[in-house]
Each structure stands twice: as structure tokens, then as C-alpha cells.
Amino acid sequence: MRVSTSQTYQRSMALMSNLSTLADKQQGQIATGKKVVNASDAPGAYRQLATLKRADANDQAYAKNVATAQGILDQADDTLSDIETQIQRAQELFTKAGNGTLTESDRNSIGKELESIRDTLFALANARDSRGQPIFGGATGDLPFAKAADGTITYVSSGEPSGIPIGDQLTMQVGTTGDRAFAADSTTNIFGVISQFTAALSSGGDVKAAANTAASSMTDALANVTAAHASIGARGTRLQMVADQLDYAATARDDARSAVEDVDLAATISNFQQTLTILQATQASFTKLTALSLFDYLR
């Protein structure tokens, strides 16, 4: 059978080219630790990796939102704790005023402290979160409480603030509106209760009845604040669950990505050495082949 020299050359060249390409691929896998870098390496695996990458990006954004929401809820929790402390102190002052005969000095002292408590509560009611948004605001994002020229404090917001996205089609409300927390539209408006009792103190008459009324109203107000506080705590627990779920999903995707993308380094190094050995042998054979003359080859 006549053997074509050109065909022999072509086969050898093709084999060396394929081996060289394989060696380059294996060397790249060893250097990067990845077996899928380009779509041509494994189209199906490349599409799977792209899907995992998009899911990672989405969940990373959600995780940041969860962290932001947790921070805001922590601020709301601290603020409500401060509000509860102020209300409890006001209750103590109402009780003190209603249980004994008050001197002028007592009236002035209690009145001034209650005015200070009212001012502190007003500031807390208009506190802003880390985004600069009012913790107890409505949909407008404006400060929820306003003080009129006569000192009357009223809730001026409306609607519900926008939630923070923490998952696909899932949002979290991180605050509570001031009308709920402070019962701003009812007779238990904490600002009005304090102002009315302070006015009764200033009148100089018997304040026992007024003190009892104020204490009862403030107990109702405290119940509203405590309920808002409990709601904040429950949402904090829910957020922690979401954060844990995002962490678990990220770990699962990382495992899936590794199974698709990461190389078995020991096996790849071994295969690379084998490929180089075959390539070197093929090159040596080709060198000897090209050194033969046509006469020697046909002889």
C-alpha cells in the first residue's frame, strides 16, 4: 500500500496541534483552578454558572438590604426603649403629684420635668434612621410630628412608608407610624396628656383627679408604645431568619459552583504531565520522520 507523505505529515501536525491545545487548556485550568472559563469549554456548565452568578448578585443585594433593615430596626428598638423610659418617668411624676400635698416648689419642679419629658418625647418621635428617614414617619418622608405656636404637638404624616426589598417579591416595613406608636389621634396622645396635666399644676388647684386621669391615659399610651416595640422585635426576628436563609442559599450555590467549575488539581496535573509526555514523543517521532528522504521512507 502506498503511503502519502503529505497525509502522514498532516496527521502528525493535527495530532501535535490537538495535544498542544489540550496542554494549554490543562495548564490554564491548573493556573486558574477552574475547568470552565469560556462558554466554549462547556456550554451547559457555562450557562449554569451564569445562572448561579446572577442569583449571587441578587442575593448579595438583598443581604445588604437586610443588613440595612436590621440596623434601622435596631435604631427603632433603641428609640422606643427611650420613649418607654420617658413615659414611665412621667407616670411616676403623675403618681407623686396625686399622692400628696404639693408645695409651690413641688409644682414647679414637677411641671418643669414634665415639660422636659414632653420635649424629649417630641425629639424622639421625630428621630431619623440611618437613611435620614423619620423612624415614625408616613409615606411622605417628612417629619411626622409638628409643634404649633401654642405648644400643641400633632401627627402630620399620612400613609405607610415604603418597605425595603429583602427577597423576590418580599419587602419589610422597618418602622412604625407615629399615629400607631404614640396614639396621636386619640385621647391618649402622650403630648396632650402631659400638657394638660402641666396646665393643671400651674392652675394651683387640687391635681389628684387630674393626676389619676393622666396616669390612666399614659398607661394606655405606654401600652401602644410597648405593642409597637414588640412589633419591631418580631420583625427583627423575621429579618434574622431571612439573613440565615440567604447565607444558606449562598453556601449551597457556592458548593454547586465548585462542583461545576473547580478542577481536581491533582488529576489535572497528572493529565497535563501525561499530555506533555505524549506531545514530546509525537514531536520526536515527527522530527525523525521529516529527516527521512522520500527514498529512505519508501525503501
Results as ranks from 00 to 15, higher is better:
4 S>G: 03
88 Q>C: 01
297 Y>S: 00
132 G>C: 09
160 E>F: 04
139 A>K: 11
234 A>V: 02
142 D>L: 09
212 N>C: 04
181 A>R: 09
104 E>S: 14
36 V>C: 07
99 N>M: 07
282 T>V: 08
173 Q>D: 12
210 A>V: 06
172 M>K: 09
212 N>D: 15
153 I>T: 00
46 Y>L: 08
98 G>Q: 08
238 R>F: 12
280 Q>G: 15
8 T>G: 04
165 P>I: 01
240 Q>H: 10
173 Q>G: 05
296 D>W: 00
129 D>F: 12
242 V>H: 04
161 P>F: 10
27 Q>S: 14
16 M>D: 11
135 I>K: 08
120 T>W: 04
235 R>I: 07
231 S>R: 07
279 L>C: 03
200 A>C: 08
159 G>F: 05
74 D>M: 07
154 T>L: 03
232 I>P: 10
287 T>I: 06
148 A>I: 11
278 I>N: 02
187 T>I: 09
155 Y>K: 05
242 V>T: 14
296 D>L: 05
30 I>P: 04
106 D>I: 03
112 K>F: 06
162 S>K: 12
179 D>V: 05
72 I>R: 14
11 R>W: 00
159 G>I: 10
120 T>K: 13
141 G>V: 02
153 I>D: 00
256 A>V: 09
47 R>C: 02
66 V>N: 07
12 S>Y: 00
136 F>W: 13
216 S>N: 13
10 Q>M: 01
239 L>I: 11
228 A>Q: 03
276 L>A: 03
82 D>I: 01
157 S>G: 06
75 Q>L: 12
87 I>S: 00
293 S>W: 06
289 L>M: 13
123 A>Y: 01
209 A>M: 07
164 I>D: 00
39 A>V: 09
46 Y>I: 01
200 A>F: 08
215 A>L: 15
159 G>R: 07
18 N>L: 00
65 N>V: 10
43 P>D: 02
37 V>T: 15
39 A>C: 07
18 N>Q: 13
299 R>H: 05
204 G>S: 07
198 T>R: 14
273 Q>A: 15
24 D>V: 06
118 R>V: 02
257 R>P: 05
258 S>E: 14
252 A>V: 13
63 A>H: 12
216 S>V: 06
124 L>C: 00
177 T>H: 03
8 T>K: 12
213 T>F: 08
143 L>H: 01
288 K>L: 12
112 K>A: 14
7 Q>P: 00
196 Q>A: 14
259 A>W: 01
238 R>S: 13
206 D>I: 10
196 Q>Y: 02
79 T>W: 01
